[in-house]
Every structure is written in C-alpha cells, then in structure tokens.
C-alpha cells in the first residue's frame, strides 16, 4: 500500500497537509521585506540563508482574514520545479503518514475560493487533513 508522508500545518481552524517532498524547511517568522506592486498575498521576501525567498501569506491567498503573527506562526519553505517560496501558516503541527488510498476527493461543501487549492482530503482517526494543491497556490493570477 502506497504511503505518503506529509507535513501537517494549521490555518485558521483547519489542518492542511503537504507532501514532504515539496517541503524544503520550516522556519520561524523573521523580518520580511515588503516588495511593492505585487499581489497582496505576497508579503515580501526574506533572507533564507542567503537566498532571497518570496513569502506568501496563505491566509490571504485563500481569502481568509489576516491574523497577527504569534509564536506558533511558521514559514514553510516549499519548492515546486525551480520555484521556491515560503508559505506563512498559523502553525506547523506534525508529520504523518497517510495511505494514498485513503485520500478522498474534496467535499462539495468547501467554499469555492478554497476548493481549487485542494487536491483532496484524508481522514485519520478524528483528524481531517486537507491536501494542498501547490501548483494552484503558486499559480500567478493572470493579467
């Protein structure tokens, strides 16, 4: 049975999951330099060990309300092809193994804005993980 190792993170009240292969590192929040004239959800850039890395606020990307940064706030550095960005999440909770067979398509009820960023959901015991579609998250808005 195929297993998938995922990093679990918190965003508002939900738990999201992202395959470990796509994750480079998890960082604490640090000084972000604002970049002018970019989409609102792009918070700016940080110095990640000498590499200037753009940071996306995932809450704003999903159209959720902004939240103050806390001690739990983390930046998950993800990589897709040659693009490397950081995602601001409320907390990075866990690493879990999920079985690929257990992945279900996203439920219809999830509201439209978030639905397109989701690959599916997994229920393990009493927790529900939403699998993030990184391609969609990193897709730039047209125009």
């Amino acid at each position: 049975m195929a297993e998938l190792k995922v990093i679990v993170f918190q965003l508002k009240d939900e738990e999201y999951a992202i395959p470990v292969q796509q994750v480079r590192s998890i960082e604490k929040i640090q000084h972000i330099t604002r970049v002018p004239r970019v989409p609102k959800y792009v918070k700016g850039v940080i110095n990640l060990r000498g590499v200037v890395t753009p940071i996306i606020d995932l809450r704003m990307r999903f159209g959720l309300e902004e939240a103050e940064f806390s001690d739990h706030t983390r930046v998950i550095i993800v990589a897709l092809d040659d693009v490397e960005v950081g995602l601001i999440v409320d907390a990075a909770n866990d690493v879990v193994d999920i079985e690929t067979e257990a992945i279900e398509p996203p439920p219809e009820v999830v509201d439209a804005t978030t639905a397109e960023y989701i690959n599916g959901v997994v229920k393990i015991e009493k927790r529900l993980f939403i699998l993030l579609n990184l391609e969609k998250v990193l897709e730039k808005e047209k125009g």
């Binding site: 000084h31 330099t33 850039v45 940080i46 490397e84």
Partner: peptide
Amino acid sequence: LKSLGNYLTSVFAISGATILGDGQVAL
C-alpha cells in the same frame, strides 16, 4: 546582487535584492 527568485519575476522598477549586514533584504 541577488535575484528575487523565479516566483517574483518582473516586479516593477525593482531589479533585484541584496542582503544587508543585519541580515535583512533590501530591494
């Protein structure tokens, strides 16, 4: 001089970034 990476391409009037002595990024 450092590039802003492959995600932020063609930011208006910004040609790149640099890292200052205090570790912060300046455009």
